[in-house]
Every structure is written in C-alpha cells, then in structure tokens.
Write a protein that binds this DNA or RNA. Structure first.
Length: 232
DNA sequence: AACCTCGACAACCGCTCCCTG
DNA sequence: GCAGGGAGCGGTTGTCGAGGT
C-alpha cells in the first residue's frame, strides 16, 4: 500500500455541497454527462457547474441517475443470485452487481446488509462465510433453511423447503459433515464470472476488470464454500 | 399528538488499485 | 523502479419515513 503524505484532497472541501442532491444538481449532472459523456470525475464538477466533489458526482450518477438503473424491490431470483455470488466472491459488491443488470454495487450492498444478512442469520447461517453456525437448526424442523434451499428462485421463507434434508432423519453431524465435504466452485455453479463490459472504451476499466477476474478465478479454484451446496 | 425505535437507502470517507510520467 | 494522481471499492454514517407505544 502506498500512502502519500500531504496528498491533495480530491476536492476543495470548503467549496463543495454535501448531503442530498437537489433536482437542479441532478439535472446539471445528467445534462453534462449526456453532452460530454462519463470520465474525468475530478474536473467534471467544475465543468458542469456543480459545487460537488468529483467522487460525489460519480456516485450520484452511478447509483441513481444512470438511465439503465433498475429501481424497486429485488426479485427472488436476484436475491438467490446475490446469495450465491456472495458465497463465491465475498463482499465484492461491484462484481456481484455486475451480474445483476441494472443494479449497482451500493444497492446490492445495502440490500445485503438490510435484508439478506439478517435472513441468513435467522436461518442459522453465518452470512460471512456461509457456513452453518455452531447451533445448527434442527433437521427435523428444516423450514429455517427454505430460503437458501429453494432452487427455483423462490426465497420465500414461508414456503416449505425443497431439499436440504431429503431425509429428515439425517443427523445434524451428518449434515454438517456433508456440507463440510463439498467443494463448490464456479464451474459447478456454471457461473460465468465475467463482468459485463460497459460501453466505454477498453483501457483502465478493462485492465482492472481482467486482473480482478483472474484473482477471483484463482480464489475460486481453491475456495471451499460448503453452503453453496444449498443452492443446487 | 408526541415521542421513540427501527429499517431502508443515499451519501460520505478512507483506503486500495493501477496507470502514467 | 518509484512517486503521484485518478478512479473505484467497500465500510460506515446520516437522514428520513413508517410503525409502534
């Protein structure tokens, strides 16, 4: 890591607005990007006549103003995919969001933290490593697993589970060891982890993405993530 | 009606990555 | 090879509205 002492701030703090964006600011940003395109976020605020930090502009555009943003609730399919991808990738929200058309990393992250995480915890699953917690839910009452088990895309916890315990008499230890023994990788899930390339030119973005994909692939090769079993 | 709590989500901040000179 | 700078990412915080007491 490189830390540069006395590094210049990304913007002149005393001259920038903070907090919620106004309609006028949104309009200025949209108009500017429509005319000039994305890029050079550092100079954009000044050029667009905005008293905002470049980072703030970028975030506002990416998370809210972009025309291809999909607003509204996440579908059960999307939720399942988020859980699967999180099991594979961890907190790499941008990679996860890349698999969800119209969704942003911030949105996925927020959804994870406010919905999915709690849901998994309720089901006795550690959301950090996707493993069953020490205190396993009883296999005789497996409904607590229904969200992650259903492979049809439904994540409605009120519906009966499909399969985790095909044999409800399976012991807790059997289940745990079964989960522990499985090594799941991207190939088994048939997940193409290539992130959609934006319409911008190749260059920085592509190079970065390529590097990230390589890293992810390497990690997946050796990754052991037992709870992915639940999704198949 | 007033207050409190909680959930959802927008936005900020600090850090890291990677390109360029 | 190194330092500086821009862009992107993820964690965290702030704000607001809904629901409960």
């Amino acid at each position: 890591m490189r830390r540069t002492a006395m590094r210049k701030p990304c913007c002149e703090k005393q001259d920038t607005n903070k907090g919620a964006w106004t309609k006028q600011e949104d309009q200025k940003l949209v108009d500017y990007i429509r005319t000039h395109g994305e890029g050079c976020w550092r100079t954009l605020p000044k050029a667009a006549g905005l008293h905002r930090c470049g980072k703030s502009c970028r975030l506002r555009w990416i998370n809210y103003l972009r025309p291809d943003i999909k607003r509204g609730n996440f579908s059960p399919d999307e939720e399942d995919l988020i859980i699967k991808l999180h099991a594979l990738l961890g907190n790499r929200w941008s990679l996860i969001a890349g698999r969800l058309p119209g969704r942003t990393d911030n949105e996925v992250k927020n959804y994870w933290n406010s919905h999915v995480k709690k849901k998994l915890i309720r089901m006795g699953i550690d959301p950090n490593n996707h493993r069953l917690n020490q205190t396993l839910p009883s296999p005789r009452n497996p409904c607590c697993f229904s969200t992650v088990i259903t492979s049809s895309g439904s994540s409605d916890a009120s519906k009966p589970p499909k399969t985790l315990f095909a044999d409800n008499d399976r012991s807790e230890s059997d289940t745990a060891s079964c989960l522990e023994d499985k090594t799941i990788g991207s190939r088994e899930l048939n997940l193409d982890l290539t992130v959609a390339v934006p319409s911008l030119s190749p260059s920085n973005a592509d190079n970065k993405r390529h590097t990230t994909e390589l890293k992810v692939t390497e990690e997946l090769e050796s990754e052991r993530c037992p709870t992915l079993l639940l999704f198949r």
